[in-house]
Nucleic acid binder design. Structure first.
Length: 561
RNA sequence: GCGCCCGUAGCUCAGCUGGAUAGAGCAGUGGCCUUCUAAGCCAUUGGUCGCAGGUUCGAAUCCUGCCGGGCGCGCCA
């Protein structure tokens, strides 16, 4: 519909150009937007204002010229000039009602588009170290990342969801040492407790499981606790498997699935790290200083050069990172989105610089990043501190257990990623009208309830028949709902384009609110069969769109509450 | 000190990348259940969009400078 109006306006402009009322070489940029106020019709455009200058006239006069040259359309009832020179388009009832047909015939596919035309995209998210349970920050990443996957699929991408496991490096050694210390009965208060050791309760759990010889299945690995507190290698293998199993379990309970797990250790095993280092050396962007090997990342906008190989000989973390991203590129992902916490912000410039230095023709802005800001958890009006090292923090599984999967996902995805998030456990837990997730789900359940009731009362309803007679839908609230429904595909498109899943949550809230208002103002199951059937069609369409939207958020759409 | 993010109602946040009188939920106040689920609805209170300049027909939105908060600034990951 928006496109139709844009087309009509372009035709009008073309004829203004050919009649030389505006210069033929004028480049015209204008918007066609949904109106906020129904007094302004259904769509509004600012063309006249942007054309006022080239036309050497005032906006309202230009607006009139455009109206005079606007082709007739059965979809548009009238066009008005308003305010400083807006053109307000009022749609005909028939074209407004046609959205219900669109929704019901497309069903679960309503709102999907093929803008990306099957383009491959990889979304990397969570990527937590296997050194402890997932905390709320990971949860936010999981909720946002998973929604991004769903949104990108909805706009025609072929999506691969990937989890990068940092199962190499210092923090893993540290994990093993911590478990070992616990296995030997030591605690943080002891002198021989490892520096920077992990202090959480879960370390004790891992140590006990190891000493008890428990068996752990994680991914493709089967590990049995060797019971020997002196065997550090065995401890490390066991601890990583144990914690990975726990993370997998938490993610599964959270409804988040990955297509691929990529192990940092594999980059060393396959020689990709070495290969990357050689390529960087050969491309001439490296130098040695103080016994270390440096990459001149300042050539690519970094504020200082970065060490690649430490004096002691090991690589810094960013080398495997570059190797990993080169591998992504070589796997054919022209588009990669990395979702991560803003505390890792500094890696962006570094990784991109490393990729540029490879001289492999990788575009400058590749990969894309979605960063989420920190999460503060509130419980009983007090902040719960998140600190893996301090050992006391709220985990994803705590939340899922306490407030439920749907509410947790909704709360973590419903806010713009760029804003810090306050997760109020008490609010998310509330099974009341305080809680927006229930509000939206309730709208869905209500639509379903109306249909259940209709059946109970013996009313027959046939979709095709109802769709051929939608003209009884003339109430203001009905028009508002139909207008809202027609916005859904655009909301999906925008959310995907901008990589902002929270737009879906906002939309659903508005749609739900309008349905609840409508439900309270107008009875659906009335005597008049034509009115009743048309209203049922509207409810069915609302139900469908709420369900489709909740699907994008990974939140369930219950038929009964 | 430098970089990134944020600052909008008492609280939590939207604001579709420059549009019309700045919105929603919660909290507050006052109403609505013999009628399809009251997990709902209606009405009402509440604003110097952090501050100051600039850009233009028009700024919460863009540019600059301050102020305040968060996160980074390792031969840690």
């Amino acid at each position: 519909m928006k496109q139709l109006i844009t087309d009509l306006l372009n035709q009008a402009i073309d004829s203004l150009k050919s009649s030389e009322m505006i210069p033929a070489d004028t480049t015209v940029r204008f918007n066609v937007d949904h109106t906020k106020d129904k007094a302004h019709g259904d769509f509004a455009s600012n063309v006249a204002m942007t054309l006022a200058k080239p036309a050497k006239s005032n906006p309202r006069a230009v607006a009139q010229m455009i109206i005079d040259h606007l082709p007739e359309s059965t979809s548009v009832d009238k066009v008005e000039i308003a305010g400083p020179g807006f053109l307000n388009f009022f749609l005909s009832a028939d074209s407004a009602q046609s959205i219900i047909k669109e929704v019901l015939s497309a069903g679960d596919c309503f709102g999907l588009n093929n803008d990306a035309n099957g383009e491959k995209v990889q979304v990397e998210f969570v990527s937590a170290n296997p050194t402890g349970p997932l905390h709320v920050g990971h949860g936010r990443g999981a909720a946002i990342g998973d929604c991004l996957c769903r949104l990108l699929k909805a706009s025609g991408h072929e999506v691969t969801a990937e989890f990068y496991y940092n199962d190499a490096g210092q923090q893993i050694t540290n994990l093993a040492l911590s478990v070992q210390a616990r296995a030997k009965g030591l605690g943080p208060e002891d002198d021989s407790w490892p520096a920077d050791g992990y202090q959480g309760q879960y370390i004790i759990d891992v140590a006990e499981a190891y000493l008890n010889g428990e068996a752990v299945d994680a991914a493709d690995k089967h590990v049995t606790g060797a019971k020997d507190p002196d065997n550090l290698d065995a401890i490390q293998e066991f601890a990583v498997a144990y914690l990975r199993r726990e993370q997998d379990h938490d993610l599964k309970a959270f409804g988040v699935n990955f297509d691929n797990y990529y192990l940092e250790s594999s980059l060393y095993e396959t020689g990709k790290v070495e290969e990357t280092v050689e390529t960087l050396i050969n491309s001439g962007y490296t130098y040695e200083d103080g016994g270390a090997l440096w990459l001149r990342t300042t050539d690519f906008g970094d504020d200082k050069d970065r060490v690649m190989r430490k004096k002691e000989g090991g690589y810094t973390y960013f080398v495997p990172d570059v190797a990993y991203h080169l591998d992504k590129w070589q796997r054919g992902f022209k588009r990669v989105v990395n979702e991560q916490g803003a505390d890792h912000h500094s890696t962006i410039t570094r990784v991109r610089a490393g990729l540029q230095a490879l001289d492999k023709g990788i575009p400058k802005g590749w990969p894309e990043y979605v960063l989420h800001q920190m999460v503060t958890v509130m419980r009983g009006g007090e902040e719960v501190k998140l600190s893996k090292r301090a050992g006391s923090y709220v985990t994803v599984s705590d939340l899922v257990e306490e407030v439920g999967r749907d509410a947790t996902r909704y709360f973590l995805a419903a806010r713009s990623a760029t804003s810090q998030l306050t997760f109020d456990i008490d609010l998310a837990k509330a099974q009341s009208n305080d809680n927006p997730v229930y509000y939206i789900q309730y709208a869905h359940a209500r639509c379903c309830a109306v249909f259940r009731k209709a059946q109970e009362q013996g009313y027959e309803w046939n979709q095709d028949a109802a769709l051929s007679k939608l003209d009884p839908l003339t109430e203001v609230a009905e028009n508002e709902l139909m207008k809202r429904l027609s916005q859904y595909p655009e909301v999906v498109r925008n959310a995907a384009k901008r990589l902002e899943p929270h737009m879906i949550a906002n939309y659903l809230r508005e749609l739900a609110a309008e349905y609840h208002t409508y439900y309270n103002a107008h009875k659906t199951l009335v005597e008049d069969a034509d009115v009743r059937n048309a209203r049922l069609a509207l409810s069915s369409a609302v139900r469908q769109v709420v369900k489709n939207g909740l699907d994008l958020l990974g939140v369930s759409a219950p038929e009964q509450m």
